[in-house]
């Protein structure tokens, strides 16, 4: 290869890199702009909100925080966040318990009908959740958890209605079973010889070894609760029982044409921030977890 060819290929590579980085930067901007717009709008005064053309940057003295106060006044977002944490906690603990036991049975125990039952469970993952929602709504209504005629729903009923249907998950059972299956048989034998019962083996050996998967399930479940809209929206009526997402949507649903986008964005920011902060703190776990769950064992 002569010098000219080398120069040519260098130029080609540089041009390629410039194009590539430009493309990536543009997509990154496309991804980030909505967040920027949310933050920017949340700190705009009512006056700046309706300036045409809209300001794309705010000066230091133009920033207002009144919108956040207004948002908290309009709807009990603090309470909603607490509810979300409680519901996420209950449903995660519940899910983990049922999932760990079931995954253990499928991965480690030998029983009649195991493979058939497993296939039946896997098949239910194909079915859209809406089919279940119809009857589940009726079930919680008939259990009296939605309150009755003139009897308001109480908090514990709302919590039960929001958590119990989600205390187990076929996908997580499947996911955890895969991790359990990867634990070599020898470890089970060793534990047997060391004098361990099945129950103790499960909690002392399998669960700690499958910790990455358990963390993933916890993260996915907590994120799912934070973003849950449909079911909590169906089974709670009282604003202070709501979770963040349906709390947010309901707070700004019936305002008609009035433009209070700045307050709305402040509220959106209030409920977006905790999740984003959690993500940045646990980035490694979350991204690994989501990609692991995405590839399905």
């Amino acid at each position: 290869m002569n010098e000219k060819d080398i120069r040519k290929s260098q130029i080609k590579r540089t041009v390629f890199n410039v194009i590539l980085y430009t493309f990536l930067v543009l997509v990154a901007l496309f991804v980030i702009i909505p967040f920027y717009w949310m933050i920017l709008t949340a700190i705009k005064s009512d006056f700046d909100l309706v300036v045409v053309p809209p300001k794309l940057f705010l000066k230091y003295n133009e920033i207002v925080f009144q919108n956040f106060a207004d948002a908290f006044e309009r709807a009990p977002f603090g309470r909603n966040m607490l509810n979300t944490l409680i519901v996420a906690g209950i449903s995660t603990v519940g899910t983990l318990i049922t999932t760990v036991f079931a995954a253990f049975a499928f991965a480690r125990l030998n029983f009649k009908g195991r493979d058939l039952l497993f296939i039946v469970l896997i098949a239910t993952m194909m079915i859209p959740g809406e089919i279940f929602v119809i009857t589940n709504y009726s079930t919680v209504a008939r259990l009296g958890w939605l309150g009755g005629n003139n009897i308001p729903q109480v908090y514990s009923q709302a919590l039960l209605a929001m958590t119990l249907p989600f205390m187990t998950s076929v996908f997580y059972i499947f996911f955890l079973r895969q991790s359990f299956k990867r634990i070599p048989d020898e470890l089970y034998f060793a534990a047997k010889v060391d004098g361990t019962s099945d129950f103790k083996y499960l909690w002392r050996i399998m669960v700690p070894i499958a910790k990455p998967t358990i963390i993933t399930i916890t993260i996915l479940n907590a994120m799912g609760t934070w973003n849950a809209y449909i079911w909590p929206n169906l089974v709670t009526d009282n604003a202070s029982f709501r979770l963040v997402t349906d709390g947010l949507r309901n707070a700004y649903s019936e305002l008609g044409g009035r433009t209070i986008f700045n307050e709305q964005m402040a509220a959106a920011l209030i409920i977006t921030t905790p999740l984003l902060i959690t993500f940045l703190l646990l980035k490694k776990y979350i991204m690994r977890g989501v990609s692991r769950s995405g590839i399905k064992g």
């Binding site: 470890l187 060793a190 534990a191 047997k192 010889v193 019962s197």
Partner: peptide
């Protein structure tokens, strides 16, 4: 677990 044996596995099976 009741036999009172010790077993060393080929791949050691350490926890």
């Amino acid at each position: 677990e009741d036999r009172g044996i010790g077993l060393v596995f080929q791949n050691y099976a350490l926890y």
